[in-house]
């Protein structure tokens, strides 16, 4: 298969590089879904539909970008959904019950998210416990902290929060929310960091092979901890955007959002083993998830659980695609040899 692609690339200069194929496949799927939607439903071709997907998924986009960092480094972060819920809850409680001003609450909430991520990163690196288990404990911790604040939903009436929720940026008859702008800024910063900074290159290197990265003299400890801190920060920011979106805080928000984020990252062509993938793929993955929901809403007679089934089928299709085009480690991903397997515990 790869030789076929080599010859094709030799003959056709515009033939995509192998590492770009998963992202292009996601893009193709997105275009296909949009075309199918536009052909079947009358109001679907309105560009506002796409903008609405952005508006409804801005928080997921931010969370998924943080998840991309962690997954690229070969780890996983199960705590994101809970941290989102904790951030909505903390904002709501501090703003409404404690009466703190928004300019204090906002940085504080973001700092709490980053601190949680930092703590998990430290435990993962220094005590060599699997990321899966540590972030699972983090998930319980954040969700538990939500319930210690309150077990019921708290509405947010703060001026700044309401302004952020209601402000719409209009251009040429279309509108987006401020959250979309924030999410896009996060995406751009993440792209820059991953492609053009030392931190980004170290992240890819550690995900590719942590032993090699260490032997190359890359700062493994610092990078690993930073990556989890970034994910914690992004989750907290996602939580703030979520509280703009819903104008409330609740401990049961975003249950299972970690799955959506992981699914978006995988559909976007990032390998769960780490080392390969792009932020732009994650953006496309989030859009695919959002478009599925939009199509199911437009169809009208399909129940909401079809979303999950379709997402499962898409996951399957994309994972198969990754297998077929062979974007994976030469050692085989299914059963890594001990040298690689020990990576998960370091």
């Amino acid at each position: 298969m790869s030789t076929l692609m080599e010859t094709a690339r030799a003959k056709l200069p515009w033939w995509p590089q192998q590492r770009h194929v998963p992202v292009l496949a996601t893009l193709g799927l997105l275009v296909l879904m949009y075309a199918a939607g536009a052909a079947n439903y009358r109001a679907f071709s309105d560009p506002q539909v796409i903008l609405n997907v952005f508006i409804d998924n801005a928080f997921l986009l931010v969370v998924a970008v943080g998840m991309t960092f962690v997954i690229l480094s070969g780890g996983i972060d199960l705590s994101v959904g809970s941290v989102v819920a904790l951030s909505t809850m903390l904002s709501a409680d501090l703003l409404e019950n404690k009466g703190w001003p928004a300019f204090v609450v906002l940085p504080l909430v973001l700092a709490v998210g980053a601190l949680l991520g930092f703590g998990m990163g430290c435990i993962i690196h220094y005590f060599e416990i699997q990321p899966f288990i540590v972030t699972l404990a983090g998930m319980f911790l954040a969700r538990g902290l939500c319930y210690t604040i309150s077990t019921s939903s708290i509405p947010i009436r703060d001026g700044f929060w309401t302004w952020m929720a209601e402000a719409k940026i209009r251009f040429a008859g279309y509108r987006i929310s401020t959250s979309v702008v924030i999410a896009l800024v996060v995406v751009l910063v993440a792209m820059y960091v991953l492609s053009y900074t030392r931190l980004g290159r170290s992240t890819y290197a550690i995900g590719g092979n942590p032993q090699n990265a260490l032997l190359m003299g890359l700062p493994v400890a610092r990078t690993k901890i930073t990556v989890y801190t970034i994910s914690g920060f992004c989750s907290a920011l996602g939580g703030v955007l979520f509280s703009f979106y819903t104008s409330s805080g609740y401990g049961l928000y975003a249950v299972g959002m970690e799955l959506d984020a992981i699914a978006a990252v995988v559909i976007g062509g990032t390998l769960l083993t780490g080392g390969t993938g792009y932020v732009i793929g994650t953006v496309l993955g989030v859009l695919v998830l959002g478009l599925i929901q939009t199509i199911i809403t437009f169809q009208g007679d399909l129940s909401s659980w079809w979303t999950r089934i379709v997402v499962g089928i898409l996951l399957f299709a994309f994972i198969l695609l990754q297998r077929v085009i062979g974007v994976r480690k030469p050692t085989g991903a299914a059963h890594p040899p001990p040298a690689l397997a020990s990576r998960s515990s370091t």
Binding site: L259, R308, G312, L315, I319
Partner: peptide, 8 residues
């Protein structure tokens, strides 16, 4: 895959 699709 089954975790996501199975609930559905």
């Amino acid at each position: 895959i089954l975790m996501v699709a199975g609930r559905g």
